[in-house]
């Protein structure tokens, strides 16, 4: 069985995988990082979104062996060093940007990727960027608000 090595949340991670092992399976089953979720089979829901070498990637649509040598960040690697919530995480809590929590890791990872690319996104840009992250609970309103807040902008969104 081939072996794969990568850096996950700053720590080296190595494991035996099959060719067909997806990154999300490696994270969940081998590394027990169960914060990355699987919500669909067609690369659409985004619950599995992680960062690979700083880019937003759906961990359900990339093989573990394709990530050889890469730097991976998952939701477990997002909090501040002291364990407190980072700015985005805190904004999600402050603005009630989550309910059941299942899509939340992907949402936070997606929001982080967006703000890296575009530190002051508009409401429309946020909604557009979240095309690949489906939430069934919140109706997105408070997620959009949380991301606006995390970017240091007014949270009074359009209709309010």
């Amino acid at each position: 069985m081939p072996q794969v090595s990568m850096t996950v949340n700053g720590k080296p991670a190595t494991g035996d995988v099959e060719g067909r092992t997806l990154l999300v399976q490696f994270l969940r089953d081998t590394l027990h990082l169960t914060g990355t979720h699987v919500g669909c089979d067609t690369s659409q829901c985004g619950a599995c979104l992680v960062h690979v070498d700083g880019e937003a990637i759906k961990a359900c649509s990339i093989f573990a062996l394709e990530v050889e040598g890469a730097e991976v960040t998952t939701i477990e690697g997002m909090a501040n060093a002291d364990g407190s919530l980072n700015t985005i995480q805190q904004a999600f809590q402050d603005h009630h940007g989550l309910q059941c929590g299942f899509c939340t890791p992907g949402m936070v990872m997606s929001a982080a990727a967006l703000l890296k690319e575009n530190p002051k996104p508009s409401e429309t840009e946020i909604r557009d960027y979240l095309q690949g992250n489906i939430c069934r609970c919140t109706g997105y309103h408070n997620i959009v608000k949380a991301i606006l807040a995390a970017s240091g902008q007014e949270t009074a969104i359009a209709a309010e």
Binding site: R28, T34, T74, I75, F92, L98, G101, T104
Partner: peptide, 14 residues
């Protein structure tokens, strides 16, 4: 929220 936001939720598939 804290557990959900840090990947520490405990769902059945976990």
């Amino acid at each position: 929220d804290v557990r959900f936001l840090t990947g520490d939720g405990h769902y059945t598939d976990d």
